[in-house]
Design a protein around this nucleic acid. Structure first.
Lengths: 138, 138
DNA sequence: TCATACTTGACTAATTTAGTCGGGAATCCT
DNA sequence: AGGATTCCCGACTAAATTAGTCAAGTATGA
């Protein structure tokens, strides 16, 4: 159970953007250098972040990215979901009714994994970009 | 961030053992069939679980595995650690002093990931095998 | 018009995962 | 004693995932 670079880098970059960009567009190169992240990889991530409405882009000279929403309203859990970082603790098929329901002995552990997932989601939903910037993290 | 089969299967098998084995040895085949797990894979996992003192084995006819400790005392977090399921949220090098310390802007997210890891560990340490068997999971 | 910076899709090397396979060794039952 | 059963253990591997790179294009400002 490891956190991948996709989710990690996306959050790092958005925190950097919230922290250093005061309204002005920040170029991806700048963020990448400051955070020591591969720029071509960041490009991929920001494509998604723009499509999902987290950031806005300005092209050309002096262009870059700005936050499209207030840092206070962006939850870490949203970012991870948008970028495609799973947070999967169970493997039960949610759609099918034949899958594990946690009711029989075979899947006694279902409640355990579901509980773990809920715990993680709750934690990450309780923290905003602004909280991270201002070190209000427990 | 997904939970792998190693950790998932190990916990499933130990819960099965605690639930169905009352002191008597349970053969791996039985557990594997009941939980729909590949037996040759389970063998690998039980090798480690025995070496770390979670289960004891009896060879030969009517042999199998028994819990070597009370189900009340075995925490889920212990099982995952024993089996080699990481629970890694950060990538900072713990040993080196040059790594990220969460003190500079570069690693503002450190506290976030460390907090997530602590949250997960705390949850899984608070639940024992017996809790899962008796459905005392939040 | 040129440098800068975002846009996008295709591609890939390396790692990890999720197992399988085969041969042994101990033990019990008849 | 012999065979069935079961654990023991290391080596091996196909498939999936990760963590990126690369190349070519488009828009913008100085």
């Amino acid at each position: 159970m490891k956190l991948g670079t996709k989710g990690r880098y996306a959050v790092m970059a958005l925190v950097d953007l919230a922290y250093y960009g005061q309204g002005k567009p920040l170029a991806l190169v700048e963020i990448a250098q400051r955070q020591s992240l591969p720029i071509s990889y960041l490009e991929q991530l920001f494509l998604k972040l723009r499509q999902k409405g987290f950031v806005a882009s300005t092209r050309g000279h002096l262009g870059g990215y700005t936050l499209a929403r207030e840092a206070e309203t962006i939850r870490i859990s949203e970012i991870l979901e948008a970028i495609g970082e799973p947070l999967e603790t169970t493997r039960c098929d949610k759609s099918s009714s034949t899958g594990c329901l946690g009711t029989n002995a075979k899947c006694l552990t279902h409640a355990l994994w579901a509980g773990l997932g809920a715990q993680m989601h709750h934690y990450l939903q309780g923290i905003s970009l602004a909280d991270v910037c201002e070190r209000r993290v427990i």
